[in-house]
């Protein structure tokens, strides 16, 4: 059965606390932390971008799965922060991991669901027997405008999944996509920071698409919330996925393993894929996992995964996502953060 044969995550080592951002703009950190349910967020190093994090996550997945990179026939990277407007992210990633030249390559973009799109397409390429292995990556180094609410959450991270048919660690039982034209969050060409429609991003955007997608895929598979070991939803903040999960009947225990946002923020295209990686790190054979992404604009991709016994073989060779989140980290103050993220005007850029 088609599924994930290997996976890995990459979380940058730098962090900034909500307190440091709030203090810069004169806001009350306690209120923000409570409102967004976020403590701190990851920050990419100045020498990191979507390409470098994708390469690291992909290399870990290749190593973890013991897969010959030359047998990977597709490299799809989903991101809203591709380093180039024109020039693929995927070619650099494919070259760095040794997947060139016999591979198909494409960059995906759909706000925060570009990563799950890549997963969706790779799964179907393998399922259609067009390829034996296909690599999907969700990665972002997202930017929130200084002083905007998004600045507390827009963060960086990457997750890579190699899809295949032989000995998957998690089989894909069902997929479903749900979308509509909903302008809740956007960035026009040549603009540096994205804009959003405030509270409109909630009910008619995030919740409508996530809940419809989840309900539909559960109905399609005949599964109830209680049938799942874990559920992972897109995490624009810490609160939305918890509220969506509860509405669908999931308990906090089913949600917390994949809920990374309170500690690393919203990794955009990496968000629900990283959550899935964190769940796979601990899931047992037979566990069912519901994953629903969300991308503004707007749409959700839903997946039902069933963990197999082959998950055990990955365990020794993987860098656990939560270990990366809680491992060695370097805290930045707002000035350092502004320098790292290119927010300071200088003559040296």
């Amino acid at each position: 059965m088609t599924g994930i044969v290997s996976y890995a995550s990459y979380v940058p080592r730098y962090r900034i606390k909500v307190e440091d951002i709030a203090a810069q703009w004169g806001f009350d950190a306690t209120v923000i932390k409570k409102g967004l349910f976020v403590q701190e967020k990851s920050v990419p190093a100045p020498d990191q971008d979507t390409i470098t994090m994708s390469v690291e996550a992909a290399r870990r997945a290749v190593f973890g799965g013991g897969i010959d990179p030359e047998t990977i026939q597709a490299v799809y990277v989903g991101s809203e922060s591709h380093p180039y407007a024109v020039k693929p992210t995927g070619t650099t990633v494919a070259e760095a991991i040794g997947a060139t030249p016999d591979a198909h390559c494409a960059d995906f973009e759909f706000a925060c669901k570009a990563g799950s799109e890549a997963m969706f397409v790779t799964l179907n390429m393998v399922e259609a027997q067009q390829m034996s292995y296909a690599l999907a990556i969700g990665a972002d180094t997202s930017q929130g405008a200084p002083g905007d609410a998004l600045e507390y959450t827009a963060s960086a991270g990457a997750a890579a999944f190699i899809m295949g048919k032989e000995q998957p660690v998690a089989e894909c039982l069902e997929t479903y996509s749900h979308m509509s034209d909903t302008p809740d969050f956007w960035r026009r060409e040549h603009e540096f920071y994205p804009q959003h429609a405030g509270r409109f991003t909630g009910e008619p955007a995030y919740f409508k698409h996530v809940l419809n997608c989840a309900n539909f895929i559960m109905k399609k598979t005949g599964l109830q919330a209680s049938d799942f070991g874990y559920a992972v939803f897109h995490q624009p903040n810490g609160k939305f996925p918890l509220r969506a999960g509860k509405k669908l009947g999931f308990t906090e225990d089913q949600l917390k393993q994949g809920l990374l946002c309170p500690y690393i923020g919203n990794t955009y295209s990496g968000s629900s894929p990283l959550g899935l990686a964190a769940v796979l790190d601990v899931a047992k054979p037979g566990d069912l996992i519901l994953m629903v992404s969300y991308g503004s604009g707007a749409g959700s991709d839903g997946f039902v995964w069933r963990v197999t016994k082959d998950i055990e073989k990955m365990r020794k060779k993987i860098l656990y996502t939560w270990d990366q989140i809680h491992g060695e980290k370097f805290y930045l103050d707002y000035g350092q953060y502004a320098k790292f993220r290119g927010k300071i005007r200088s003559n040296a850029s």
């Binding site: 390409i51 690291e56 180039y84 650099t92 760095a96």
Partner: peptide, 17 residues
């Protein structure tokens, strides 16, 4: 060893990895 950006040729030039 990690894969990183080494430098870029200004904001409009090629990124050197």
């Amino acid at each position: 060893v990690e894969f990183r950006r080494i430098f870029d040729d200004g904001s409009s030039g090629v990124i050197n990895y």
